[in-house]
Design a protein around this nucleic acid. Structure first.
Lengths: 120, 120
DNA sequence: TGGATATTTAAGTGATGACTTAAATAAGAG
DNA sequence: CTCTTATTTAAGTCATCACTTAAATATCCA
């Protein structure tokens, strides 16, 4: 569905503690202006503005306009869409296990697992 | 629970199309050696090896030893653990909506939403 | 109009990231 | 021991990233 490049761009946007904290705060406290978002961080306003641009490009937030303020809002839809990747990956993983189980349950000779020593 | 820095490191590891593809293949095809992993990619073996190191540091894969081969295995546990962030974030988001709804349902005057123009 | 507030753009810097090729290490096979 | 296979380390390059300060833009308010 979503092309891998877009997915990885979204994950890359999540791959920064500051941006993760911003999203967390938008989720629990609701829409905020850039100044409000910036307040708890020990960094300049432009730095925060740049983080917000990354989040917006990744589709994780949107911005409205309220006079001179640009309120930021979490985009829950993109969040949910991104979470799907984990579901799909886990599903593929489990499908593989099911196949393996069915194979091992068959009355033929067991196939002797190849990759040993997997807890160093 | 998981410190934000570790979470963001994991997301950063997911924020690359090559690594995302590697994980997808490990999920659906099972444990693979470095060579097998590298085969479909148009990049050198050391490049792939470096990607694997990133994934391992992020806890997303583990590696065993089978003679000269180092089979890579997806770490489903870390994957599930990472997916929890989405659950938590969505939960916080919904809690906020519940509070808002309860407030709006109260017989007092409605609070006039502040952030307008949120679909440009 | 002029001034204060909110936010972004520009331009630069140092660190990190994604590669490369060449050489090192590790282990199985003759 | 030597050859081949599997993987990693070393070292270097080029692009991107996370910031910074200074200046530009936009909007409100008197």
């Amino acid at each position: 569905m979503t092309p891998t490049s877009a997915l990885s761009e979204t994950f890359a946007a999540l791959g920064d503690p500051t941006r993760l904290a911003i999203l967390g705060r938008l989720a629990s406290e609701g829409d905020m202006t850039v100044q409000e978002i910036a307040r708890p961080f020990a960094m300049s306003l432009p730095a925060v503005s740049q983080h917000l641009k990354v989040l917006e490009r990744a589709g994780l937030i949107s911005r409205g306009r309220d006079g001179q303020k640009r309120p930021c809002r979490l985009e829950a839809a993109r969040l949910a869409e991104t979470a799907l990747w984990f579901d799909h990956t886990r599903a593929a993983w489990e499908r593989r296990f099911d196949r393996l189980e069915r194979f091992l349950a068959a009355p033929q000779s067991p196939p002797a697992s190849k990759g040993e020593d997997h807890e160093p």
